[in-house]
């Protein structure tokens, strides 16, 4: 078994138009910028993107949105200091937004990966984001029924990975990576370093290889390690 893919270009080559893609990251931490660039070059369009943010400036998801490749975005916090690409396409109606509270987003993704059919959560009860949703009172507390979110692909960034797909992350760049890895038909991890099978301590593996289809070494480039000034 060898899940190592020689290039990002090859790793994303089979993404079809209309695909749903989970993209890891919170702010810039854990965003697989290089893999998104490879998808931009590949040209897939009509995409549904599931991610916490909608990108800033002209980078990452913002680049996909700016180029008109995204039809729908499912996220918790699209507004940023410099989220011009999102703002324009959203206000013009070209981009559909499904706004999901951050914890519900994480749990709905987790549920998809864990084979849960739906769950009741107290988050958003009595708010606009629960309008039209089924609710239930359980032991005196009010809950909202939420369904899983799965995707065709998950693009995530990890620190180290091996040929079996085992991954470890770095600091708060972990964020959505481990749950997204479980919830997509094809999870692709870009890693800073590919290590030999056996080099990762089994006690500390965060994402077991069963959840990962492809691993690509990208190296310490864009947003990794010490901040670039």
């Amino acid at each position: 078994m060898n899940k190592i893919c020689p290039s990002l270009e090859e790793a994303v080559s089979d993404v079809p138009d209309g695909a749903s893609i989970m993209i890891g990251g919170f702010g810039d931490a854990g965003v697989p910028f290089e893999m998104i660039d490879a998808l931009v070059a590949q040209g897939a369009k009509e995409l549904t993107i599931i991610s916490n943010n909608a990108g800033t400036a002209q980078e990452g998801i913002a680049k996909l949105i700016h180029l008109g490749r995204v039809r729908k975005i499912v996220c918790s916090f699209p507004r940023q200091a410099d989220s011009k690409a999102f703002d324009e396409r959203y206000l013009s109606g070209e981009l559909t937004l499904d706004l999901v509270p951050q914890g519900n987003l994480a749990e709905r993704i987790r549920a998809a990966g864990a084979g849960i059919g739906a769950f009741f959560t107290p988050t958003a009860y009595g708010t606009l984001l629960a309008e039209g949703k089924e609710t239930r009172e359980i032991n005196g507390r009010h809950y909202v029924l939420e369904y899983p979110i799965s995707a065709d692909y998950a693009f995530i960034k990890a620190f180290k990975g091996d040929a079996l797909g085992n991954l470890v992350y770095r600091k708060t760049a972990r964020n959505f990576g481990p749950v997204m890895a479980t919830a997509a038909k094809c999870t692709i991890a870009q890693v800073t370093e590919v290590v030999e099978v056996g080099a990762l301590d089994p006690e500390t593996v965060v994402t077991p290889g069963i959840f990962v289809k492809r691993v690509v070494q990208v190296g310490p480039a864009h947003a990794d390690g010490p901040a670039q000034h």
Binding site: S76, R79, Q102
Partner: peptide, 8 residues
């Protein structure tokens, strides 16, 4: 532009 993050 609506944004909720982790507030709820």
């Amino acid at each position: 532009i609506p944004a909720v993050g982790g507030a709820m």
